[in-house]
Simulated assay, not measured.
Amino acid sequence: MARLDAVLFDMDGTLVDSEKVWDVGLKELARRYGGELSTPARTRMIGTSMAESMDILHIDIAQPWRDPEESVRWLENRVGELFAAGLLWRPGARELLAEVRAAGLATALVTATRRNLVEVALGTIGAHNFDVVVCGDEVGRTKPDPEPYLTAAAKLGADPRRCVAVEDSPTGVASAHAAGCVVVAVPCEVALTPPDGVVEIDSLERMDVATMRKLVAGRAAA
């Protein structure tokens, strides 16, 4: 029976309900430029890099000439203020993370969010809960490319095929699946159409370490 090497967690929308915080910052940024962010554009941003999100926003408000770096600086400062006020856990996330740690399993946080904001968020979710943290500005290609999850597994000395990745967004699911991980998808802000082999659940309250071990063993036996 194949063993479970590690559990790799996404952050925004998976562990913490931070997508709503990003909503506030992005809408404020659009209004700062005299525009209004549309719902379809906001949906396309979920799980993408900061650079991609700024491109989407600028095009959506018909100001493609805007400097993305300037927009990122303003947005990160604003979202950092909101993160510092505290983040809400997604249902079952804190309990699952605690169970994984209590089982002695290696863990990684794998996020498209940049390091400076992740450090603020770790004030809520706890840096001690992760052996490795891989941020969006620390890889050459971010989600949906497999590089973030491959990087996390390599840093842990783990086989991606024996890792469970927990994700909420289409880009995150695609990244973890392409890396060869066993993927547990728990939708938050957008509906998912996960590829074959991805396990979709409606809440992390329905997931535990025993089930993760069975998923990895089942993959190996298939």
Rank of each mutant, 00 (worst) to 15 (best):
D55I: 06
A85L: 13
A93R: 01
E167N: 08
R90A: 06
P194S: 12
A174V: 08
R219I: 04
D196H: 07
L97W: 03
P146S: 00
R90C: 09
G25Y: 08
K155S: 11
I125L: 15
V182N: 00
V7L: 09
A178N: 02
V132M: 06
E167W: 00
P64M: 06
P144T: 09
G157H: 10
D202G: 12
D131R: 12
L57P: 10
A51N: 11
M54K: 08
V133P: 09
S53N: 14
G86V: 06
V24E: 13
C188E: 15
R115H: 13
D196P: 11
A221E: 14
A84L: 06
S38K: 01
E138T: 10
G218R: 10
L57K: 07
E147P: 03
M50D: 14
R3Q: 13
A93S: 13
L26M: 13
V7T: 06
I59G: 14
G104N: 10
A51L: 13
T124R: 08
A98D: 15
G13S: 06
N129E: 10
E200V: 12
E119P: 06
G104P: 11
A102H: 06
G218H: 03
R44P: 02
N129D: 02
G136A: 12
A158Q: 10
P68N: 08
I56H: 12
A179V: 02
S53F: 02
L82F: 09
T211L: 15
S38H: 01
I125E: 00
Q63M: 15
P68R: 09
E70A: 15
C163Q: 11
G34S: 05
V100W: 01
A165P: 10
T107L: 04
K27F: 12
D23C: 09
R32N: 08
L75K: 14
D208P: 00
D168M: 03
R101P: 02
L57I: 14
G136D: 11
C163R: 10
G172Y: 05
V16Y: 05
V16F: 05
L57F: 10
R73N: 12
V118K: 09
G157W: 09
G197S: 00
T211H: 02
T151V: 11
D131N: 14
T43C: 06
E36S: 13
R114N: 15
M11I: 04
T48P: 05
M11S: 07
M1K: 01
K20D: 12
L117A: 04
K143C: 06
E52Y: 10
F130E: 01
A2T: 12
D159K: 05
G80F: 13
D208Y: 01
R31P: 03
A217Q: 11
H177P: 05
L88C: 04
A85Q: 15
A112R: 08
L215C: 02
A191D: 14
M207S: 00
V79N: 12
